[in-house]
């Protein structure tokens, strides 16, 4: 699970949970994989991201070093920022671990890089 995916995930599907965001990450295996850097794509993607959640996730998986806490004002032309964003959003891969609902503590397993967000009937 890339952090770009994590950024879009919520546990508000659980009965009684209102926001369910951002999900905590308990990493058990994290890999860093090289992905081709595409600054235009990133520049367009950044506004869709909840940056504070990106930072929190990066911290959870231990890859927040040197990551800007805020979106740079001129991020579309800021290569340094885009590269940092590229790395954190697309190259870090949570292979094994859990995602944790911030409101209920309900854990969703991540295995082989795939988050399983299925609920039991009574939870929905």
């Amino acid at each position: 699970m890339k952090l770009i995916t994590h950024n879009m995930l919520t546990s508000n599907i659980i009965k009684g949970v209102t926001k369910g965001y951002p999900l905590g990450i308990i990493p058990r295996k994290v890999e860093v994989k090289d992905v081709d850097y595409n600054p235009e794509f990133l520049a367009r993607m950044i506004p869709n991201m909840d940056w504070s959640a990106v930072c929190k996730a990066a911290k959870d998986v231990g890859h927040d070093e040197g990551l800007p806490k805020e979106i740079a004002p001129n991020f579309t032309e800021n290569d340094e920022f885009l590269k940092a964003a590229h790395h954190v959003l697309l190259e870090i891969d949570v292979v094994e671990g859990d995602l944790v609902c911030p409101e209920t503590g309900r854990k969703f397993p991540v295995s082989n890089g795939v988050p399983n967000m299925l609920l039991k009937e009574e939870e929905a």
Partner: peptide, 13 residues
């Protein structure tokens, strides 16, 4: 990028 989820409870923002 893919996740396992149910269409009746889509865990997306």
């Amino acid at each position: 990028l893919a996740i396992v989820s149910d269409i009746l409870s889509i865990p997306l923002r």
